[in-house]
């Protein structure tokens, strides 16, 4: 396989990481907490979509929407029940609560769905892959299998394609929402100074709820995309991608939205490239090593910035 092939699969994985990392970074920016249960929302999204798709009546698109709705509500409810009462508590208490919520979700899934891995049906199962073939000094494009293995440049499965496109569209929409709408501006204001935001007439509690809602809905989408590409689904499915997305968020500069996008995509690419060229067993170690190196030289992450206070 070619380098470009690995790059594309890295982009696809990275785009999914970016979606998850956005949830981490937005919640951190607004509520100043690390929501370690965020990864498990992915798993809940996966199971919800799985259950809906498995029932004969529910079309795929509707299953995805149900999954998004369930995760959005779950995210908001978790914030209200578990985190809101601790708004003024020491950060460690909130962190431990988040870990508790994470175990709660995993165990709830264990109880309902059992520990066996389910085989997640792809959301685009009958769609053929794209193939780019190099032929007579030009690149040709096929959507049906062609027998030109020696000249094959690149195969992009529908899952990979959909992951990249959906993630990019969501990231563009989110960027627009944050920077151009009133609710988005309110989120930026709350993330900088809750008290001052309140003085502007911004409802801080509602803004925090909105942030959890958006983060969790992105996690649902990420869950469906990830399970389509890597179809094993069990109660622990969300934890590793959750941790890696957290790494991506720190990598990009926690609290920074473009940082989470860049961090996620870079992380996915680094992971796939090191799997391909160095060692598939060591790929996770390499990912974390890159993080450590970046943090040594730029402790705030790639786009994290330090704000100098002026008197």
């Amino acid at each position: 396989m070619s380098f470009i092939q690995y790059l594309v699969s890295g982009l696809s994985l990275g785009a999914i990481y970016a979606l998850i990392a956005l949830g981490y970074t937005m919640v951190y920016g607004i509520a100043k907490m690390l929501n370690f249960a965020h990864g498990d929302i992915i798993m809940v999204g996966g199971f919800t979509a799985f259950t809906a798709i498995s029932s004969a009546w529910c079309p795929v698109w509707l299953s995805v929407i149900i999954s998004i709705v369930v995760c959005t509500v779950l995210g908001v409810v978790i914030e209200k029940i578990a985190y809101k009462p601790l708004r003024n508590a020491p950060p460690l208490a909130v962190l431990i609560t988040a870990i508790g919520v994470s175990y709660f979700l995993q165990n709830a899934a264990l109880l309902i769905f059992g520990s066996d891995s389910k085989n997640f049906p792809s959301v685009v199962k009958n769609a053929p892959p794209f193939m780019l073939v190099y032929e007579n000094s030009g690149v040709k494009f096929f959507t049906s299998p062609v027998d030109t293995a020696d000249k094959l440049l690149l195969t992009i499965s529908m899952e990979t394609f959909v992951s990249i496109v959906v993630s990019l569209v969501i990231m563009a929409a989110l960027t627009f929402f944050i920077n151009k709408t009133k609710a988005g501006k309110a989120m930026l204001a709350v993330s900088e100074d809750k008290g001052a935001a309140q003085l502007m007439g911004i409802n801080v509690n509602a803004t925090i709820s909105l942030t959890f809602a958006i983060g969790s809905s992105l996690a649902a989408v990420a869950g469906v995309l990830m399970c389509s590409s890597y179809p094993l689904l069990n109660p622990y499915t969300g934890s590793m991608p959750g941790i890696k997305a957290f790494v991506a968020a720190v990598f990009g500069g926690i609290g920074s939205i473009p940082g989470a996008m860049i961090g996620g995509i870079l992380l996915g690419v680094i992971e796939q490239i090191s799997k391909a060229y160095i060692s598939s067993q060591l790929s996770d170690a390499i990912v974390f090593m890159v993080l450590i190196i970046v943090l040594i030289f730029k402790p705030t992450g790639i786009l994290g910035k330090k704000i100098n206070e002026k008197v």
Binding site: K182, A186, L188, D193, M200, I202
Partner: peptide, 22 residues
């Protein structure tokens, strides 16, 4: 408020618009 507490990462214009939030 004391210490101004303007939104440091937003532009002057965006700060003013937040003042008219309601």
């Amino acid at each position: 408020p004391e210490g101004r507490r303007i939104f440091q990462q937003l532009s002057v214009y965006e700060n003013l618009m937040l003042g008219a939030f309601t």
